[in-house]
């Protein structure tokens, strides 16, 4: 058991001690590179297929390099660039607001659950856990959202339902429970209230898990199209993924609707181009933010 003072004066081990080169490290890098490539290759394939002509794909299958290079799929999707840009805006807003409020509410709920001395700890944990398994199905959810909450065509309908997710709360709880209790006790003896302890000690010490859960929130909000399918009639409130989903099903219906006039849309390359448009910006942001993200984890890791 270490005390606060000791912790704070301890040299930052990882940053200062440079490990000499060794073979173990090389093997580790080798394994991770292989796994990394296995994850990267399909992404390259997606980009390649999105730029290939339909005919070449049908004749030769997939290649890592685009065959019969064409931008048709992108041109088709971006016919109305305003629409896509708007959808990016909606998604960005939903993701930002949803992630921040979700993180706050979930950690506020997780912290009491992590406290051994909180008398409602067990029943409340159960209360949270129960929602992980049981749900009332779509019909009552739809009735609640539209008739009682009036959230049809309201951007809150894309945010609120995912704000508290049992899975995240329970992971946060587990992580909070492992914080050194002496630190909290020391703060309490100094006269700090629960709120101050939470905001000034618990949250800063929990950066790694907050960053992780934050990332999950981002992915969840970014990738969701289902809530929009249920509640969004107004095209100007479509989030990106739903817009792409709608474009894709429309193309599919057109492709099998014999009445279609005009040029047939190449379905495969269009689907891949949509995937690129959906994850491209997300990955780009991820790469940009990663420096901060990684540092956040490291600082948190050293302090804790």
């Amino acid at each position: 058991m270490t005390t606060t003072a000791e912790l704070q004066t301890r040299p930052t081990v990882r940053a200062t001690v440079r490990r000499p080169f060794n073979w173990g490290q090389l093997v580790v890098h080798l394994i991770l590179s292989l796994v990394g490539i296995a994850c990267l290759l399909p992404m390259l394939l997606i980009v390649s297929i999105s730029l290939s002509s339909e005919r070449e794909i049908a004749l030769n299958g997939y290649r890592l390099w685009p065959q019969g290079f064409t931008l048709f799929a992108y041109e088709y999707i971006l016919q109305q660039p305003g629409q896509i840009l708007r959808a990016y805006g909606v998604t960005a807003f939903v993701t930002a607001v949803g992630t921040l409020s979700g993180l706050l509410v979930c950690s506020l709920l997780a912290y009491p659950l992590s406290r051994q001395d909180y008398i409602f700890r067990r029943p409340l944990s159960f209360y949270v856990f129960f929602t992980l398994l049981f749900n009332g199905g779509m019909v009552p959810f739809y009735i609640l959202m539209t008739r009682y909450l009036g959230l049809k065509d309201n951007i809150l309908a894309l945010i609120l339902p995912y704000m508290v997710t049992a899975w995240y709360v329970l992971i946060l709880r587990t992580s909070f429970a492992q914080l050194p209790i002496d630190l909290l006790d020391a703060a309490r003896i100094d006269g700090a209230g629960e709120w101050r302890i939470f905001f000034q000690i618990v949250l800063p010490l929990s950066k790694p898990v907050l960053a992780t859960i934050g990332l999950f929130f981002v992915l969840r909000y970014w990738n969701d199209w289902f809530l929009a399918l249920l509640f969004m009639n107004r095209a100007d409130l479509y989030p990106l993924q739903y817009l792409l989903y709608v474009l894709m099903t429309n193309i599919n219906v057109l492709a099998s609707n014999p009445q279609t006039v005009g040029i047939p849309i190449p379905v495969q390359s269009t689907r891949m181009a949509m995937a690129v448009l959906a994850f491209g910006p997300a990955l780009f942001t991820f790469l940009l933010l990663q420096k901060h993200f990684v540092r956040g984890i490291t600082i948190g890791g050293l302090k804790g």
Partner: peptide
């Protein structure tokens, strides 16, 4: 969708379907 693409690429020669009047034109588009 993939089968249709193969048809467009010339990998099939005939289909069997509801051959209503005008279906030849619709299939051509």
């Amino acid at each position: 969708d993939e089968a249709r693409a193969a048809f467009r690429a010339g990998l099939f020669a005939m289909g069997y379907h509801v051959e209503k009047p005008g279906n030849d034109v619709e299939m051509q588009t």
